[in-house]
Design a protein around this nucleic acid. Structure first.
Lengths: 206, 206
DNA sequence: CGGCGTATAGTCCACGTGGACTAATCAGCA
DNA sequence: TGCTGATTAGTCCACGTGGACTATACGCCG
């Protein structure tokens, strides 16, 4: 079970997360991801999506549920999430949300955090804040050290920016955690895929 | 010439940039990148580095200059930069520095910006600032639009963070540009690989 | 009404990466 | 002095991705 989670790529997780909203064929996943601008998080190409779906099927995380044909369009294979697949998404997000290495993975985890219960998401983000603070201390120390050895500024630009970005994320996280902690934050049940998205899907299917 | 630049990966650029400091064998590149914490920018493994060097050789951007053997240690192949390789680094940085998509590439470009003349680097970063400002406006507009359609906050966390990060980078860039514009910023000639680094290499070679 | 472009749906190959493996030598500890 | 573990140096295979390619159907412009 745990080893399966290790083999998930960001795109794989997004695919599984989409199937939590309902059965779907790969091409529709691509449309939805593009419509929601999720292609800013992972690169969404035909090659990667179809291959990813095939791989997830081999892993037993999703399964074929039918081949329908609309008009005389090419036939399309529809897939559904298995229990293992549903569990794997949650496990993956749980693992990636607090990690400060692997920023790509984190952005995907954050955008799928709604698949967790609110309390758990908050706890994981709080852990992240601490790790981020430690990371920022390291970066600042490294910069300080380099300056005592009078390394020319031009060589430190990237490190400076890194420290600034880390500080900014820290500030954002503190702010977000404060908002998430207020009891009037709605969040809702993690399994219910929100009426809105279902409507969006219908609109896209039109 | 331009097509060669298209085929450069971030790791490839870092390898070429290292060779601008002097001839080197792949294993030494790995040591240096780790020592300078450049493995925060790209993943530095034996597999990728040796393969990358072989590819750059096929592209004619670097060339074997000798096989020496120290003591009875395994023999090591030393490589040198060709003129085309030297030019390719500059071209690549020139192209990636202002781009706001592809953040990975940008971080490498920024850390190799010292290979450009100061004036050119400043001009490219100024172009980046404008592109970044436009990108931030888009993100903010998208968020505003989502809020008018009352999308639950839990689905907007990643987008919010993205906007905050973009704003932070914008602030850092403005600050950095202001410092870079002051005439007492030293920068120096782009070709001279800085005494300091040569010492560092000797120390590592020891 | 004919043609051109774009949307739908999917396959397949080439490329780059990363981790596992080999193998010898040096440093340190007991 | 012998053993263990880390360092030096490099090879190789399996995996995931992305771009090119195929093929049909629909919409639109002239």
């Amino acid at each position: 079970m745990r080893d399966v989670v290790d083999r998930l790529t960001p795109l794989g997780v997004m695919v599984l997360a989409l199937l939590r909203e309902g059965d779907m064929h790969p091409y529709e996943m691509i449309r939805l991801m593009r419509m929601r601008h999720h292609d800013r998080l992972v690169s969404v190409t035909h090659g990667s999506v179809y291959h990813t779906v095939a791989r997830l099927e081999r892993l037993g995380l999703l399964a074929e549920v039918g081949i329908d044909r609309e008009g005389r369009r090419p036939e399309r294979t529809t897939y559904a999430l298995t229990d293992a697949g549903s569990e794997a998404v949650v496990e993956w997000v749980r693992r990636e949300l607090p990690r400060v290495d692997r920023p790509e993975e984190f952005r995907v985890a954050l955008s799928e955090a709604h698949n967790l219960e609110r309390d758990e998401a908050v706890a994981l983000l709080r852990a992240r804040r601490d790790a981020l603070a430690a990371s920022h201390r390291d970066l600042a120390a490294g910069l300080g050290h380099a300056r005592t050895k009078s390394v020319p500024e031009q060589y430190l630009l990237e490190a400076e920016r890194g420290a600034a970005m880390t500080a900014a994320e820290l500030a954002w996280l503190d702010d977000a955690l404060e908002r998430l902690d207020r009891p009037d934050f709605d969040w809702g049940a993690p399994d219910v895929p929100s009426e809105r998205y279902l409507h969006q899907r219908e609109a896209a299917r039109r």
